[in-house]
């Protein structure tokens, strides 16, 4: 990879200041960024590590909300949300492998918005709020397409707030090489209704399957989605499966999540 300067600020303020420089990039675990840099597909001149900032590392359960600091690892989330939000803990516990979960962070995953990442499904499926150094962004407004988010240049994810649902379930069907989701669905049941977020499937990145949400909000059973059709126009088609296959999996995974919760 190209060389760069690694800086390790200890406060959000210092990190944001360091990121003002051109070609500076935040680094919050690097489990995706680092291999990308090895392939020379990314070449920041300055990497600003967020991992040494204590105020970004926390899991707090407050009432019906779970607050997670941006630099909190998947392993920590898996461990510390087990009781308060088991659906989220279970998703975190299945990201990558144990070594990845010890390094990768929630902020890094959301900011990267890989179309096959797990966390975006939890954030969108929970209607989470993403906090940054300068504002709060609703998950519905945060994900703007494959590898694209509402984050501005130099803006960092400082935390995520998840409203705790009555129940939630993440059904993941893996791509056998990368072990990322080929298609995975996060279903969360709230008083206000059901949310269904799909990752791995679409060229547009994580998305909400609104038809299913409406149907499930009326009747929470796998039968409710049986006759729905998933549009495969924007679905990813590759070596591992066609768009039609991913559309089909979206439905199957949704039904399975619902069945498991029913």
């Amino acid at each position: 990879m190209h060389n760069f300067e690694l800086v390790k600020p200890t406060s959000i303020e210092d990190a944001v200041a360091a990121l003002k420089e051109e070609e500076a990039q935040p680094y919050s675990g690097g489990q995706t960024l680092l291999p990308t840099m090895k392939a020379r597909l990314a070449a920041p001149t300055k990497l600003v590590s967020l991992l040494g900032i204590d105020e970004l590392r926390y899991v707090r359960i407050e009432g019906d909300q779970v607050h997670v600091g941006g630099a909190t690892t998947h392993a920590t989330v898996a461990r510390e949300t087990k009781e308060a939000y088991p659906g989220l803990a279970s998703l975190a516990a299945r990201i990558g492998d144990p070594a990845v979960r010890n390094r990768g962070t929630i902020g890094g995953s959301l900011a990267n918005n890989d179309p096959s990442a797990c966390y975006p499904a939890a954030a969108l499926g929970s209607g989470a709020t993403i906090k940054t150094d300068r504002r709060e962004i609703a998950a519905d407004d945060f994900f703007e397409g494959m590898f694209m988010t509402a984050l501005e240049e130099g803006e960092i994810v400082t935390g995520v707030t998840f409203p705790i649902p009555q129940a939630a379930r993440y059904e993941k069907f893996i791509q056998p090489a990368s072990r990322f989701p080929l298609t995975a669905v996060f279903v969360a049941k709230y008083d206000a209704g059901v949310r269904v977020a799909v990752t791995g499937a679409s060229e547009l990145g994580v998305f909400r399957w609104t038809e299913a949400e409406e149907a499930l909000s009326k009747t929470f059973s796998a039968d409710a989605v049986k006759d729905l059709k998933v549009d495969d126009a924007d679905m990813i088609s590759d070596l591992h499966g066609s768009g039609a296959y991913r559309a089909h999996l979206t439905k199957v995974m949704t039904a399975r999540a619902v069945t498991a919760l029913s």
Binding site: G30, L34, K38, S49, L51, V100, R103
Partner: peptide, 27 residues
């Protein structure tokens, strides 16, 4: 490997297992 997938480089850092190929020495 060079895509952080094979696990041949696992070490423990502060007791936790990590991929030594996916962490900078300075960290």
């Amino acid at each position: 490997c060079d895509t952080s997938q094979c696990g041949a480089c696992l070490v423990h850092v502060d007791g936790e297992v990590v991929k030594a190929c996916s962490m900078f020495a300075a960290e």
